[in-house]
């Protein structure tokens, strides 16, 4: 790390935790350079494999604890896809489950001290959201042909309003991947940055008398934020997944 010169006072680097750095030294980050992104994505993959492959190795009728968690996650997403997007969306279940697992594990692993949160980067969430957007649009056209465009033609509205609504619908359709990705990255980044700011205040007691009050307060705030972030980590994965299901439903059944 850089010069964390405590003798000078408090050190604020709230955004440094998001820096992409090569794992084995050097300054340049090429496309194939193993970076902290690589490390934490690999850990994510290993954790997912650990839970869903190693955890279910017993194939027990009466499940072990890990197998219960794997089954719960499976049931949770499976039910979500079925309820939100319909039965015919279940063939996309592995794809949606992959997204959910990646996001929820990245978010949770990102909460470990010193961890790098891959989902706090717009490059990552943008790719996820664009993948959903492109896939869903392609499915929409493949399944429904040109009648997919009726998604933008609100037939329940008065005829005069329909062209206006169509413009709004089209704009909102294309804004989807933007909001989809920024929502996740923004939530992750903001929470971690806030924790880091509070963390910077925590050692104040070492430098100043005000610290007697500020240090316990900031530690309390870190604890509270951390609890909130655990909830947010899960909720954002849930929101991303359920929005994917909603978009998929629009693609499969575009008629309002």
């Amino acid at each position: 790390m850089a010069t964390e010169d405590h003798s000078e006072g408090l050190v604020f680097h709230p955004m440094d935790q998001f820096m992409v750095k090569p794992l084995f030294g050097g300054d340049t980050v090429g496309m194939l350079t193993p970076t902290n992104v690589t490390l934490w994505m690999a850990i994510t993959v290993l954790c997912i494999a650990g839970l869903f492959v190693f955890g279910t190795r017993g194939r027990a009728i009466v499940p072990s604890r890990t197998q219960s968690i794997a089954e719960l996650a499976y049931g949770f997403v499976h039910k979500m896809v079925e309820d939100v997007a319909g039965k015919d969306a279940l063939k996309f279940f592995p794809y949606i489950f992959t997204l959910f697992c990646f996001i929820v594990f990245s978010n949770m692993l990102g909460l470990l001290p010193k961890a790098f949160t891959t989902t706090s980067h717009i490059a990552v969430t943008g790719v996820l959201a664009l993948a959903v957007f492109i896939t869903v649009t392609a499915i929409g056209f493949i399944k429904n042909g040109a009648s997919f465009l009726s998604l933008f033609w609100v037939s329940s509205a008065p005829l005069a309003l329909r062209p206006v609504l169509a413009v709004i619908e089209i704009i909102s359709y294309f804004v989807r991947p933007v909001s989809h990705s920024i929502r996740l990255a923004g939530n992750m980044m903001a929470g971690h940055a806030v924790i880091k700011v509070f963390a910077a205040f925590a050692p104040l007691v070492l430098f100043s008398a005000v610290g007697v009050v500020v240090t316990p307060l900031s530690i309390l705030a870190i604890t509270a934020m951390y609890g909130l972030e655990v909830v947010v980590a899960f909720i954002q994965a849930y929101v991303f997944t359920i929005l994917t299901c909603v978009y998929l439903k629009d693609a499969l059944h575009p008629h309002h």
Binding site: M15, D16, F18, M19, V20, V29, G30, M31, L32, T33, T35, V37, T38, M41, T118, S120, H121, I122, A123, V124, V127, L128, A185, M189
Partner: peptide, 15 residues
């Protein structure tokens, strides 16, 4: 760091 375009290719590749 999120807006540092030079790291995008790396992140997207590993993602």
């Amino acid at each position: 760091p999120q807006l540092d375009l030079s790291t995008f290719a790396n992140q997207i590749f590993w993602l």
